[in-house]
Amino acid sequence: MHFWKSNRRFAWLWGTLIGITFIGIGIMQNQFALIWRKAVMICMECIGIG
């Protein structure tokens, strides 16, 4: 609790570091290839056809 209170001002930094870690894990799990594959084809659901 004390740690959290004293570091509250830098919570954004912890959040950013968690984000970078998550992106690292995402890269290792090949999740960005899946995002890319979805994004480079016309998404029929998004345009209300599929």
Binding site: W12, W14, G24, G26
Partner: peptide
Amino acid sequence: PFGALGFFFIFGS
């Protein structure tokens, strides 16, 4: 979905 959550944490933070 770590890939998407990572972006949310960075932009959000």
